[in-house]
């Protein structure tokens, strides 16, 4: 029977069912994003590309908006991608995912392409996602008739263009557009945008939103697999330590991700079918089973905060405490009950 063009693809094609990998030994060996990209030593964004592709598997199409993972990954005439990949514009991750998913759905519905669930993933950096591309991502998350995942790899600056401040840069960070000077110590006074929770709260029909970090690679891959299995438009926000822009020895990429979580600065949570669940160490923190480490332990390890003095650390700590002590949903929703 001919499906109408407003039927959700999940109703007549479905999704790929990607079971979570229980334990590191269960992780697939096959690589779909391989060696020979041109990113920095210790690049956690390249790491999340690898994990994302591994989790999604071979029947996937990846769209990459402008940023490090475009310029440094795919320099013309060679590629690290095994699965199909295409560049999209800086603000277009939402549109790229929607357009690709729409093309596949229309062609399959009309019998012009063999029917199968194909994963469509568009990634963007924090500049492309939290800043320029926000309205297109918001629109994509309203289109429940399509299967698509938007993954925002957040290295907290426009890292590719030489580390300029973005709406996702942490308070006070040194960037080439917010350099501490003789008169102004803190040039960047905006608090980091709460992108994942904003999108989850603002798009009630979006079935899955999660935050991840490369320091928990298996959790990260399983969130990607969950998002793709649930179907519809979904969003994942990944925090990627960036040795270049954050200024630290690349060897400590993994450790800094852990510290971001342990200090409570980066909460790990997923929102599935409108139910929010913190996971990992963030869940322990919320339940009071784990004491948050002082933010200093994280900030002092990075050259981008080397200009901080006590009052800056204190302010950062106070704002982080609020997230866990005052927010309606600790670490997620910044409302408080009257």
């Amino acid at each position: 029977m001919q499906k109408s063009n407003v039927e959700p693809i999940t109703d007549f094609i479905g999704t790929q069912v990607l079971e979570p990998w229980k334990g590191i030994k269960k992780v697939a060996q096959q690589e779909y994003f391989t060696s020979g990209h041109r990113t920095c030593q210790g690049c956690e964004s390249a790491q999340i590309m690898k994990l994302m592709a591994k989790a999604a598997g071979p029947r996937s199409i990846i769209l990459g908006s402008t940023g490090c993972m475009y310029v440094a990954n795919t320099t013309y005439y060679s590629t690290p991608w095994v699965i199909p990949w295409m560049h999209t514009q800086l603000g277009s991750s939402g549109s790229a995912a929607t357009g690709t998913a729409a093309g596949l759905r229309a062609l399959m519905r009309k019998g012009k392409m063999s029917k199968e669930p194909i994963n469509v993933i568009a990634f963007c950096g924090d500049g492309g996602g939290a800043d320029m591309g926000l309205s297109a991502i918001s629109a994509a998350l309203q289109h429940t008739e399509y299967n698509l995942l938007i993954l925002m790899y957040d290295n907290e600056s426009y890292a590719n263009t030489d580390i300029q401040v973005s709406g996702s840069s942490p308070y006070g960070a040194n960037t080439t557009f917010s350099t501490p000077g003789k008169v102004q110590r803190i040039m960047h006074r905006r608090w980091k945008k709460n992108t994942a929770a904003m999108l989850a709260a603002g798009h009630p029909e979006c079935k899955y939103v999660a935050t991840i970090c490369t320091s928990s690679p298996i959790e990260a891959m399983n969130k990607v697999r969950r998002a793709l299995s649930i179907g519809g438009p979904t969003f994942i926000h990944s925090l990627d330590p960036c040795p270049k822009g954050w200024d630290y020895d690349p060897m400590y990429s993994h450790e800094l991700g852990e510290l971001a979580i342990e200090t409570g600065i980066w909460p790990l949570y997923e929102v599935e079918e409108n139910t929010v669940k913190l996971y990992g160490k963030s869940r322990q923190i919320a339940k009071g089973l784990r004491k948050r480490k002082p933010v200093r332990e994280y900030l002092e390890r990075q050259g981008r905060f080397a200009h901080f003095i006590d009052e800056d650390f204190d302010y950062f700590q106070a704002k982080t405490d609020e997230m866990w002590e005052k927010w309606l949903v600790p670490g997620v929703i910044p409302f408080s009950n009257p």
């Binding site: 277009s92 729409a102 392409m113």
Partner: peptide, 16 residues
């Protein structure tokens, strides 16, 4: 309009 044109651009790459 930016999204309007980007969406069809990408649909075109998969054969639509």
């Amino acid at each position: 309009e930016h999204s309007q044109f980007e969406i069809v651009k990408h649909a075109s790459t998969v054969g639509a």
